[in-house]
Design a binder for these strands. Structure first.
Length: 414
RNA sequence: CGGGGUGUGGCGCAGUUGGCUAGCGCGCGUCGUUUGGGACGAUGAGGCCGGAGGUUCGAGUCCUCUCACCCCGACCA
């Protein structure tokens, strides 16, 4: 991609109203644009990163047997009345009446819709288990949208729902998703850990949240640094300085962002919506459910919160919008031609590269590159025959010959 | 939803006790000189001051209402 053609510009300034680090950097770097409080557009650069996050999550969901679906956003009140949640979610759900006089809500979550569908296809224990997921917008009329991408009113979420013939089977799958979630966050380059949590309004059963430590976090986690024990402060019986229930060492408090969660739903929804199956013994039983969510925008925002410096964003290897940011400083026609040829050869080698071919000062190119945060910066100039191979994270630079670049890039990302 | 704050060219801001033609920086156009950490000079375009109403000879400045955004808190599948 030629940067001269890239839609969106970097900015030096942003309103002092914007206090959130992720919103400031992502806006200044041209990844997102705010439409209204808690509602953002993704610009070309932002969508590149978003797609990478999405693909990692999709692959891991497929890996544990998930099948992707796409559920509607418009949902009738009558559906929600089956579980009584139309009233329960009224404070947070966008609800309105259409021209036919039908009461409609924008999907704040999709348990009712998915359960209604599954009901149409499940009769026997032979039809179970079922794992369905989608990656789709959710709408929540948050009392206070804040922290940029961390708490929006319209946001994309991956939600997986599992349907089982027994608690035991759910427990088994719950553990599998738990592992899959850890893998997702690891692949994204986030240091996430799971904590025990209350199910909140979603579920009265146990659940886990996947937390990332950052000052921008809204949650407080009590955790043990000696072992893996951690609980959300909301449900913790111990406080900072107390002994860890598992290993006896002192526990501490940390601010965290909840990047994902998994819930035991049990029979809450199957009971309300009469989702039953015939078991081996010929008896009708309620389907046992679980649900598992990850907020994609929140993940992007969290990466920025967890990985940036005074100059800008530092993307992780798997979420960098482009693999290489080629900074073309050549002035002589000969060198310019070489730079273009070099750009083409990178593309031919299947390396995703953003080529800063703009006719602007070098200082601005470097500032922009640091702000945008692509993992590798490759600088080509008249100064020397070699190119500079620069790692954004620590700004270490090495001179290497052009013919070795492709190998070095592939090595870096392998 | 309670408390606090802010709305002025594309972006960031200034504008005193109301006063004349609404300023500055960035960005943008043109010309020239530049080119290794957001270059410089010249020149030019662009705003009716969030919106509505009111007070006044006169309102960006005062009053009322309203919309929006940000921060703290409460809330948070």
């Amino acid at each position: 991609m030629l940067q001269s053609k890239l839609f969106g510009k970097t900015r030096k300034d942003i309103s002092q109203d914007e206090k959130s680090v992720n919103a400031e950097l992502l806006t200044r770097a041209g990844f997102i644009s705010k439409q209204m409080a808690g509602v953002y557009s993704y610009l070309p650069l932002g969508l590149k990163t978003y797609r990478k996050v999405e693909q990692i999550i999709r692959e891991e969901m497929d890996e544990i047997g998930g099948q992707e679906v796409l559920l509607p956003t418009l949902q009738a009140k009558s559906l929600w009345d089956q579980t009584g949640r139309w009233e329960e979610l009224e404070p947070i759900m966008y609800q309105f009446t259409d021209h036919h006089g039908t009461k409609i809500g924008l999907g704040a979550t999709h348990e009712e819709v998915i359960t209604d569908i599954v009901k149409q296809y499940v009769n026997s224990y032979k039809d179970l288990p079922i794992y369905l997921y989608q990656i789709q917008n959710k709408f929540r009329d948050e009392k206070r949208a804040k922290s940029g991408l961390l708490r929006g009113r319209e946001f994309v979420m991956k939600d997986l729902y599992s349907f089982h013939d027994s608690e035991e089977d759910l427990n088994k799958y719950y553990k599998i998703t738990h592992q899959a979630y850890l893998k997702v966050f690891k692949r994204l380059g986030l240091e996430a850990f799971s904590v025990e949590a209350s199910g909140g309004a979603m579920s009265k059963h146990n659940s886990h949240e996947f937390m990332v430590k950052t000052e921008a976090g809204e949650d407080i986690t009590i955790l043990c640094n000696s072992c893996a024990w951690a609980q959300n402060k909301e449900i913790a019986n111990v406080k900072a300085g107390d002994k860890c229930p598992d290993c006896g060492k002192k526990v501490e408090e940390a601010k965290t962002v909840e990047a994902g969660n998994i819930f035991h739903l049990g029979n809450t929804y199957s009971k309300g919506m009469d989702l039953k199956f015939t078991d081996k013994d010929g008896k009708q039983k309620e389907v046992i459910m679980g649900s598992y969510g990850i907020g994609l925008g929140r993940v992007m925002g969290t990466i920025v919160e967890a990985s940036h410096d005074k100059d800008g964003i530092i993307w992780t290897k798997t979420t960098t919008p482009y693999q290489v940011h080629l900074l073309n400083l050549a002035k002589s026609d000969k060198r310019k031609k070489e730079a273009n040829k070099f750009y083409m050869s990178l593309k031919e080698a299947d390396i995703d590269v953003l080529h800063d071919d703009r006719d602007i000062s070098f200082g601005k190119k470097l500032k922009d590159a640091d702000l945008i945060g692509i993992c590798l910066q490759i600088i080509i100039s008249d100064k020397q025959e070699e190119i500079e191979f620069k790692i954004r994270a620590d700004k270490t630079t090495s001179l290497i010959s052009i013919k070795n670049v492709i190998d070095e890039v592939k090595k870096y990302y392998s």
